[in-house]
Amino acid sequence: MNNKVIQSVHIYILLIMSTGFMLHVLILPSILSSSHRDSWLTVISSIIPFLIWSFLLYFVYQKMNNEDLLSILYKVLKKPFYYLFAGIFIIYFLFTAYISLKTTFYWANTNYTQEVPDFFVVFLFTFICFYASYKGIRTISSIAWVILPIVVFFGFLVGIGNTHNKNYELLFPIFENGYKDYLQGFLYTCSGFFEILFILFLTPFLSDQLKKKWLFIVSCVLLMLILGPLIGAITEFGASEAEKLRNPAYEQWRILTLGLHITRLDFLSIFQWISGTFIRISLSGFIANSILNHTGTKKWSLPMLYLFIMVGAMIPWGGTSFFYFLHHYYFLINLIFLCITMVFLLIIMTVKGETS
């Protein structure tokens, strides 16, 4: 059976939808809280680590020589170490899906599902993501291809539509508290962007080749996905107010008006948010399942993985405590883990080159 069912363009779209959700929604409040008014400068400067990481990722991709990453690791590593690596990444992708689902649940419960039982909200959304993962990467990619233009259109709508609410003087002065805040924001921008490493797990399904030029272009697009709503939040609400907002990108929809009579357009943000988190969760579930099934087919694996995600999302965890955990622990741990993984893969590819 031919597993090469997607093209490189699908990879780029999945990057924009999945990692874009991380940067646009999850990371944005932490950047504002750490870098304050200087956060927009931090994001612009992040193009440097973004491009360096993209170069390293492309280098690893080239060294793979069209081989499956897990197959390479299976040949190079001893079995216990291979299973350890595979297990760690299954947990990583499961936790990625859990964080996305939990954040979406808090947002939905706060804004429009107060009267709906929590279990029904979590179960329904989890089941939809499960079905997409079950249908496979081609289905997930096709859905992302269809909804991306709509998501982009809505992004331009809220950005341009709020122009009259923006005061760009609020972006200045810069460095009023020194350079510490400016530098601190790099931890969060890199934590979000470096997760594009996940595309190495999708290469077995790729029918053509990734291009360095397009990978760098996608890096710039992801940068704009943080920069646009970040500048919008500061210029519309002021730096100090923007820091207090749990979802700065969503709050910009609340003040959007078209003319004198068209108001309350924030319902359109529901499509944006749900689209991003749907692609992110279903893609994470699919990758976790493909790792688990690399050495054999286990029909029970995908339902079990989603059961863990759903049960985890239903475990009570106060919103304030949850977002404190994200800001102070999760993003930093995620960054360290991804950097260690990149170093590990660079070493593995060097060893592979010497032994081949």
Results as ranks from 00 to 15, higher is better:
S46G: 15
T297R: 10
I262W: 14
I147W: 08
F175E: 06
K212D: 01
V343I: 15
L23T: 06
D38N: 10
F205G: 07
P29I: 12
I48R: 06
V311L: 14
C190S: 10
T263R: 15
F286W: 15
M310Y: 06
I196M: 13
I231P: 03
I13M: 04
H164W: 00
I137E: 01
M224A: 15
A86P: 02
V152H: 02
L335N: 07
S290C: 07
L305H: 13
I128W: 05
L268P: 01
R280V: 04
S240Q: 07
Q7R: 11
I128R: 00
L346I: 08
T103A: 14
N3P: 02
K79S: 14
T235E: 09
D266R: 09
V76I: 15
D38Y: 13
F153G: 14
P173D: 10
L200E: 08
T139Y: 07
L326D: 04
M349R: 01
Q7Y: 12
V25R: 03
E243G: 02
L197D: 04
T297W: 06
H294V: 12
I128L: 15
F156N: 04
A108D: 02
T235R: 00
I287C: 12
K166P: 01
R246T: 11
L345V: 02
C190Y: 11
P204K: 05
E195F: 03
S269M: 10
L69M: 11
E176Q: 12
F21A: 12
Y98N: 03
I347N: 00
I217Y: 14
F193S: 05
F119K: 05
K213M: 04
E243V: 12
L256I: 08
F130R: 05
G159H: 08
T103Q: 02
T263M: 07
L223C: 13
A132V: 00
S39H: 10
Y329G: 00
D68N: 15
Y131E: 09
G276K: 11
S282Q: 09
L346R: 00
L292F: 15
I13P: 03
G159I: 00
N177T: 09
L268T: 13
A233Q: 03
A144R: 05
F127G: 02
G192W: 09
